[in-house]
Design a protein around this nucleic acid. Sequence first.
DNA 1: TGCCGTTTCGG
DNA 2: CGAAACGGC
Length: 471
Amino acid sequence: MSNRKPVICWFRRDLRVGDNRALTSAADAGAPVVAVYILDHESDGIRPPGGASRWWLHQSLRQLSETLRDRGVQLVLRRGRSVDVLAALVDETGASDIFFSRAYEAGEVSIEHDLNRRLGQRVALHRCRGQLLFEPETLSNASGQPYRVFTPFYKGAMRESAPSEPLDAPSKLLDWDGQLASDDLDAWQLEPTGPDWAGGLRQTWQVGEAAAMDRLEGFLDAAAQDYKTGRDRPDQESTSRLSPYLHFGEISPRQVWHASTAAAVTSPAAAGGIEAFLRELIWREFSAHLLFHWPQLTEKPLRPEFERFPWREDPESLRTWQQGRTGYPIVDAGMRELWATGWMHNRVRMIVASFLVKDLLIHWREGEAWFWDTLVDADLANNVASWQWVAGSGADAAPYFRVFNPTLQSKRYDPDGVYARRWIPELGHAPDALADGPQVTSPESAYPEPMIDHAAARERALAAYAALRDT
DNA sequence: TGCCGTTTCGG
DNA sequence: CGAAACGGC
């Protein structure tokens, strides 16, 4: 067996061994498996990961290396243009096949086309599914077009046959006994090289496939019961926090789907919460569907009139927002949670995004760029689709006149100020500091005054929108 | 997956 | 007179 030609399993955003069609198919080929991960910041159309994502990727690759090593296979690390690296690996190993999970972002799609042109005649390429439940090409609306609106997309997806059973991790992997050079993970410097800002991330997250499955099971055992309303409460632990694992493919949407539907059967009390949860999983599918069919979503508003929107250039206010010093506790708590942990509660994401885009009239792309750099779950499709949703410039978006009032949102979703105080220590323990809004902060506190009057800002935003519509 | 000013309804 | 309903942004 050692002299047999190997097959290559090219890991991308599927950093797991369970329910990984590419890996399982490679194993089933019966040949030795060469596993590779390529750090590709060079191919055209690739947006390199932000700081928090790089930190996560480092942990994730270390874990995957260990998992594969335990199964007798080395994870080869290479950097460069994916197609060049794969061509070199084929030369070095004489591999007959390459197995990989398909990806959907424009840059990744081009890589797959280039790979086919470059190596399609020499080796068998196996493009496997796994990152999504539903392929973007297979879902279309009544007129045969890609969906632009969530609800019909959701209904259409629910009419599809249910996702098939997840695969177990392959029971047997054959190692290839040739020698392959591999980069040293540390040399990629994915972790902070200067000041160590990742302490909060380390405290918050257990990265990796096993942790992802633990988290899913823990969520389904407890929080899912109360998810329908609890998911809006940043002061509670009611959400799954699976987003970074899903982004990096440490868990597959099919695994999430199956564990969830099974839990709904076992525990009818949780069924409503689980349905709401799976609906969020379908939002992830919808974002991927939109970006696949409208790659320009990353840069351009889907509603063309927003090209003329009078966004303000205001670097100082942008920085104030980024640093969580707006003077609105729910906004600042969210921005500080993001900076400290690489994650922000979904309800709070909507609040801070509304504040940036509507109160400050700063372009959604600035917010999107900041989230890209700071979120451990930063995902191109989710990020741009959600920012356009908030800004009102997307196809199926919140109407522009929906302006979140940060004070009201605090009262409703963080009624005791628990969340705000957790992230803003200088608020102290004054009983109603938050419920009553920003103006209650004590004068000697270091906490800033509101940077802008919300009522006036709301009027300004509505006027800007009205002008857009009338011209 | 809004907010807000106004109107209407019931005790 | 407060809560609920409503309609415009």
